[in-house]
């Protein structure tokens, strides 16, 4: 482990966790794959269902954030995190355990998004595989935060994990993972050649198979920055909604002009991140819609945290929304 005098300690903590545990918050394989339940997904196959453990992280983020907000980054929380890092290194206790007492009530919800996504894709006729024991985080945060040197060796690990599944196509639930597989890792030597798809794209390709979803009023679409700007996917979401007979409205800024949910700033500037989330929620509620749909784990978590109690709005992942149409009878 290196220490760097010019970066905030929390970033090093995240880095160390990714490198040591293959997960930004040191969640283990059992925790990451507990969503799978009765879904029978082989570990090898043509199409790899890739969660990257990202929706699984979400329940931990808000409690962590609550602790960090109102405390300056050079103060107690950072010392605590530094302490946590030391614990990871010297005693082997993961920070996740330190924050275990703060587990959010949303854990089941966020975990079930993985289940619902895999279920939808299976229903649409995709033969998926999922590597419950071997899946590791995409490394997006190493890329985002500047740990590019670490990314060299991490890319090899991700490549090996993917190669083991024998997949030719990887379907990413998180646009951040998709960006890594599509735009970043191909620049690395010997990274397996893959067709990279997002969940949205696979659903879009078979959208004519979806059943109509009854709704009372139009929904509003929030485009994620990565999905809309980096991956160029925004029309597909509207096409899917058209296919299931759902009318939608657009907020003041959307598609390639979409407003960031504030999520990327969460760990370092939690207060600002929250304000940005609140402002985006205002843009969404200003449309008059009472439900917002999106397709990114961090947008889901951020906007959820930016809700105004006086102006209720339901923030839902596209996965959750479509699942309702695919299977009315199963309640998870």
């Amino acid at each position: 482990m290196t220490t760097n005098k010019h970066i905030p300690p929390v970033l090093e903590l995240i880095r160390d966790n990714i490198i040591k545990y293959g997960n930004p918050l040191a969640l283990n394989h059992r925790q990451n794959s507990s969503w799978i339940k009765d879904l029978d997904l082989p570990a090898k196959g043509e199409i790899l269902f890739y969660t990257g453990g990202e929706y699984q992280l979400l329940p931990y983020l808000e409690p962590l954030l609550k602790t960090m907000t109102y405390i300056d980054p050079a103060g107690r929380t950072f010392s605590l995190l530094m302490g946590a890092r030391k614990l990871v290194n010297f005693i082997g206790i993961a920070p996740e355990k330190i924050f275990a007492g703060m587990l959010a009530k949303d854990k089941d919800r966020y975990n079930s998004i993985n289940y619902k996504a895999a279920y939808i894709l299976k229903k649409l006729g995709y033969d998926l595989c999922y590597d419950a024991q071997g899946e590791i985080y995409s490394g997006a945060l190493l890329y985002e935060l500047g740990f590019w040197q670490d990314l060299q060796s991490y890319a090899v690990r991700v490549g090996q994990a993917i190669r083991k599944t024998q997949a030719k196509t990887v379907v990413c639930l998180s646009p951040h993972a998709a960006e890594m597989f599509k735009h970043v890792y191909p620049q690395f030597n010997e990274f397996p050649e893959l067709e990279v798809k997002t969940f949205v794209e696979l659903v879009w390709e078979k959208r004519d198979k979806l059943s109509p979803i009854p709704v009372d009023s139009p929904v509003v679409v929030h485009d994620s920055c990565r999905l809309a700007r980096d991956l160029g996917i925004s029309k597909e979401i509207r096409d899917i909604l058209d296919s299931v007979g759902v009318s939608y409205v657009e907020p003041i800024r959307n598609k390639e002009w979409t407003t960031c949910c504030g999520g990327p700033g969460k760990m370092l500037f939690p207060e600002i991140s929250k304000i940005i989330a609140k402002r985006r929620v205002i843009e969404l509620t200003d449309t008059g819609a009472s439900k917002a749909l999106l397709a990114c784990p961090y947008c889901l978590s951020s906007l959820q945290g930016g809700l105004n109690p006086d102006k209720p709005m339901v923030i839902e992942d596209l996965v959750e929304f479509i699942y309702r149409g695919v299977n009315h009878n199963v309640e998870l």
Binding site: E144, L145, G146, W148, Q149, R229, W257, C260, P264, G265
Partner: peptide, 27 residues
């Protein structure tokens, strides 16, 4: 935030998020 909306607006299409990422790696 590396959200990239600045690039949409920029008449020179300066890829600020990419440069920020690279500079972070230098930091």
């Amino acid at each position: 935030l590396r959200c990239g909306r600045c690039v949409e607006r920029c008449p020179m299409q300066i890829d600020v998020p990419k440069m920020v990422g690279r500079l972070r790696s230098e930091v």
